[in-house]
């Protein structure tokens, strides 16, 4: 029983990490309608930035969170403005190829600059674990989980209550009508891509206390993030959170009760089942419903 409870807690906390990455992905998809295959490489850039800030300036990863999120906001905005936007009128698969291109370019840039070595920060707080009754909890995982919840709450308020947030939802449902309301649609896309990338920046800072950085670190997380986003419903904020927690639980339970090597098999089976049975995801109502 104790081990079961521990596995549940581990799974939920791991889900928090997946959630932050998936939220950015689902936001970009929901508003811009582009599947961002460069998402993992944005995470890699963020983690290297956190690593350099730690090594050169002695900053704790949590201190880097805001500056790195801002840096990635700009990176995302630049990608949208100069890579995706010129292709908006092209076929959607051209945009996908473009993000794959950005992904490959960034990945190789990472290899060129940093080499293939695995680098690890030793941050102190964030890496150690503490006991809570019978349970053992890694502090960094708990922080990540709480930040994921706070991020979903914050984005919810932003999307519901502010003019720009409402415009995000309006643009995702009906570009033409939104432009008739006076919304600068292209600018909203730039903001949305930037915001989605900024979420990854935040994730980079939070994950750097627990995970090492290397050029392909992104693919490890984003493959899972894609499963999460499809599971929750593409473009759905709460879907991403719930999907992430579910995948975290599956990861943790299947890794223990079945086999660590087979846990990915389990969640890809779930992924395929969702695609077959409910292609709009758990919380998706169909196109533009978020």
């Amino acid at each position: 029983m104790d081990i079961f409870l521990q596995l549940i807690v581990n799974g939920l906390l791991l889900g928090g990490a997946y959630a932050i990455i998936s939220i950015g992905l689902t936001l970009i998809f929901g508003v811009v309608r582009v599947v961002n295959f460069a998402h993992g490489e944005l995470l890699m850039i963020g983690m290297y930035a956190v690593f350099l800030a730690s090594q050169q300036l002695g900053w704790h990863p949590y201190v880097s969170a805001i500056p790195v999120a801002l840096m990635l906001f700009v990176t995302g905005a630049v990608i949208q403005r100069f890579v995706i936007q010129p292709l908006l009128k092209a076929d959607p698969h051209i945009q996908i190829f473009a993000t794959v291109g950005v992904s490959t370019a960034l990945l190789n840039l990472g290899l060129l600059i940093f080499g293939a070595d695995v680098r690890q920060i030793s941050p102190g707080f964030g890496a150690e674990s503490f006991q809570l009754g019978e349970l053992s909890i890694v502090s960094g995982q708990l922080v990540t989980f709480l930040m994921a919840i706070a991020l979903v709450g914050g984005l919810h308020v932003f999307l519901q209550r502010t003019y720009v947030g409402r415009a995000f939802r309006a643009v995702s449902q009906h570009r033409y009508a939104a432009s008739l309301m006076g919304v600068n649609v292209d600018r909203m896309y730039v903001y949305a891509f930037g915001l989605g990338a900024a979420c990854v920046g935040l994730a980079a800072a939070l994950l750097s206390t627990q995970y090492p950085v290397f050029p392909t670190v992104g693919s490890y997380f984003t493959l899972t993030a894609f499963v999460v986003v499809v599971l929750g419903g593409m473009g759905s904020l709460y879907g991403a959170l719930i999907g992430a927690l579910l995948i975290g639980l599956v990861d943790s339970l299947a890794g223990y009760y079945i086999s660590p090597d087979l846990k990915e098999v389990v969640y890809f089976v779930i992924f395929i089942l969702i695609l077959v049975v409910r292609p709009t995801g758990l919380l998706g109502l169909g196109r533009g419903s978020e």
């Binding site: 415009a167 309006a170 008739l180 006076g182 919304v183 419903s289």
Partner: peptide, 29 residues
Amino acid sequence: VERGLTMIPEGRQLFPFLTVKDNLLMGAY
């Protein structure tokens, strides 16, 4: 639109998954 010319488009073109209230607030964007 900022200059004061607003069109109510053919076929209504509401935001289908936004509440009526949010649709109205979008009008005042």
